[in-house]
Each structure stands twice: as structure tokens, then as C-alpha cells.
């Protein structure tokens, strides 16, 4: 870096529009506070997920031999208890919604073309709904005597 400026009066630096600047296309009213609630949800779900996910990692990967012990019998043992079913169900829903909203923000930030942005988000929402429903179904219909 040096002190000599690349720009002068005849060759001005490029102008950066302030983010979220109001333009002619901006609607007068955004109608809802969806983004505010989204922002709040990220923080509230985040705090709960710190407990749920770190507890999950501790049980699955640290205590009692780490990953060695995991198998169908281990899952059956844990899901015999409604407490751990509830834990996993909360973790599934909160983590999926937290992650989906995070990726929605990332897509909004980096996908510049309207159609690209739209289809990436449709893909995201489809995958999210599918995964949440599948996971919920698995927790509720788990059968330890399936074999």
C-alpha cells in the first residue's frame, strides 16, 4: 500500500450505493415485519441450539467411547425415552429453520439475477420441507423391532 491515490477529479473512485438504499422500485411499505422476526428467531433459536446441539455432540461423539458405540441399538435405547425424542424433534426443527433462514440470507446476498435467486430459494425451501417432514416422521414412527 502507498499513499498515492489511484483516483483524482478526472478519474473518480467508483461510487458504492449505500446498502438498502430506497429506489423508485422500492415499495412504499414493506407491509410486514418478517425480516425483524427472522432476525429475532436466529438469536432465540441460536441460544437454544447451543444447548441442544452441544449436548447432542457430547453424547454422540465424546462420552462413552465416542462414535464407536453408535448403531441401531444405541438409537433404539435413546428413542425409548420421550425426553430424547422431544430433544431430537426440537433440535431438528430449530436447526433446519435456523439453517434455512441463514442460507436464504446467503442466497439473497450473492445470487444477483432475479431468476437465479428465485430458483435457488425454491430449491432450498423444497429441500428444507422434505427434510423436516422426513425427520419428524422417522422420530414419531421409529420401531425398535423393525427387523
Amino acid at each position: 500500500m502507498n499513499d498515492v491515490s489511484l483516483y483524482d477529479v478526472d478519474n473518480p473512485a467508483p461510487v458504492i450505493e449505500p446498502p438498502r438504499k430506497r429506489t423508485k422500485k422500492t415499495p412504499k411499505s414493506t407491509r410486514t415485519n418478517f425480516e425483524l422476526y427472522g432476525w429475532l428467531f436466529m438469536r432465540l433459536s441460536g441460544v437454544v441450539l447451543v444447548v441442544l446441539v452441544l449436548g447432542h455432540l457430547l453424547i454422540q461423539l465424546v462420552l462413552d467411547g465416542g462414535v464407536s458405540k453408535i448403531g441401531f441399538a444405541f438409537v433404539a435405547g435413546r428413542w425409548a425415552s420421550p425426553f430424547w425424542q422431544g430433544w431430537d424433534l426440537c433440535m431438528l426443527w430449530l436447526a433446519m429453520l435456523h439453517g434455512a433462514n441463514g442460507l436464504r440470507t446467503v442466497i439473497n446476498d450473492y445470487a444477483q439475477r432475479d431468476t437465479t435467486r428465485f430458483w435457488l430459494k425454491m430449491l432450498l425451501y423444497t429441500a428444507t420441507v422434505f427434510t423436516v417432514l422426513l425427520g419428524t416422521l422417522v422420530i414419531f414412527t421409529f420401531d425398535p423391532n423393525i427387523a
Partner: peptide, 27 residues
């Protein structure tokens, strides 16, 4: 890290769903 964790989460729900197929598939 957020994006990486989210992608792993998809895989992890899918692999756990194999407990509905058979104990052997899951193991």
C-alpha cells in the same frame, strides 16, 4: 461454518432416516 453445518444436517437427517429401513442399513 453455517453453510457447512447446514449441508451436513441434510446428510445427517437422511442417514438417520435409515433406521426406518432396517437395522443393517443403518449400521
Amino acid at each position: 461454518t453455517g453453510v457447512l453445518i447446514f449441508f451436513f444436517l441434510f446428510v445427517h437427517v437422511l442417514d438417520t432416516a435409515l433406521v426406518r429401513v432396517s437395522p443393517e442399513a443403518y449400521d
